[in-house]
């Protein structure tokens, strides 16, 4: 009987201890104020777009924190003005020379603490050979393509395609063979990409590469913008690693960082060009409308 009692007590203790919903405290980490920077210099036109944000302690209420203040952004010795909440710091790099070293210095106060960070990158200067900006009108399923010429100094290219007005079910392409509207809403969170690496464009080639748009890039009847970017190694690191910080078992790993001091982020020189096209449910309707209004834009239509 003694054995049974001891065993029952032990078993009860085990059951009691094997219940519950433990909590995890993520507070108490040594928080270090830092700038988070996305800095791009477009080598085509010298447009510099620099977004400077601040970090927040994990687990904190972000609304309780103020933006960084007295932020000074100096690009190659020139202070860039603050433009807006969206564009942040923007300017034109006037004197551009191939391979010239561009330095970026950022300083300011975060929660009353003075922080500064800096990074350097080599300027890619020149222009990407590419198709006309406007690609034309198309129906879903049509072959849509444009070309890009590789630039000697860019090592990595991406294409970012996005609808001007993604809308919703009303302009969703229901006749696509892959997804219903309901399925799209699920899949768009995991499978559908906006940034597409153009792995096959390479700097050593003098060819002009034709990019064929797949029907899985377009899900709505609307105007699409295509942003083609050729960049340096910093840009490659940014695109290929910045979204992979969390591993499948919950561990994080550090992604590539171009900044030293009190900052993390990307500072890269890129070539960036834009294209756009219209995807219509029925081109014939538009064609008729155009004829009525004597708009002589027939060359935009494909030869069907």
């Amino acid at each position: 009987m003694k054995i049974l009692i001891i065993w029952c007590i032990a078993f009860s203790i085990l059951i009691f201890n094997s219940c519950g919903d433990p909590t995890v405290s993520v507070e108490g980490f040594d928080y270090k104020p830092q700038f988070i920077v996305d800095a791009f210099i477009n080598g085509v036109d010298g447009d510099c777009q620099i977004r400077v944000k601040r970090n927040f302690p994990i687990g904190s209420n972000i609304s309780e924190f103020k933006d960084a203040d007295s932020v000074v952004v100096i690009l190659k010795g020139v202070r860039l003005p603050y433009v807006s909440k969206y564009d942040m710091y923007r300017g034109i790099l006037k004197f551009r020379f191939q391979d010239s070293l561009i330095d970026l210095n950022i300083s300011g106060y975060i929660d009353g603490k003075y922080c500064k960070t800096s990074a350097k990158t080599k300027l890619l200067h020149g222009a990407l050979i590419t198709s006309d900006q406007y690609l034309g009108y198309f129906e879903y399923g049509d072959s849509i393509s444009f070309y890009v010429g590789a630039h000697n100094n860019a090592t990595f290219y991406t294409m970012n395609i996005y609808p001007q007005s993604p809308g919703g079910e009303y302009n969703f392409i229901h006749k696509n063979p892959y997804l219903t509207w309901e399925q799209y809403q699920v899949a768009s969170k995991g499978f559908i990409r906006t940034v597409i690496p153009l792995y096959n464009i390479h700097e050593s080639s003098e060819e002009v590469f034709t990019i064929h748009l797949k029907d899985t890039y377009t899900w709505f009847y609307t105007t699409y913008w295509i942003e083609v970017t050729g960049g340096d190694q910093n840009y490659k690191d940014y695109v290929m690693t910045s979204k992979t910080g969390m591993e499948f078992d919950g561990n994080f790993h550090a992604v590539h960082n171009d900044f030293d001091g009190d900052g993390v982020g990307v500072f890269t020189s890129v070539f960036r060009v834009y294209h756009y096209f219209n995807l219509l449910e029925q081109i014939r309707v538009l064609y008729n409308l155009n004829n009525t209004s004597n708009n002589n834009n027939n060359e935009l239509f494909r030869n069907r």
Binding site: F29, D30, I36, K53, I58, R193
Partner: peptide
């Protein structure tokens, strides 16, 4: 676990999603 100690949040989320894919 290797966990982040701080995070950056972009208040212009919509713009960023379409401009950089982040």
């Amino acid at each position: 676990l290797t966990a982040p100690t701080s995070m950056g949040v972009d208040s212009a989320a919509n713009v960023v999603v379409f401009n950089s894919g982040k």
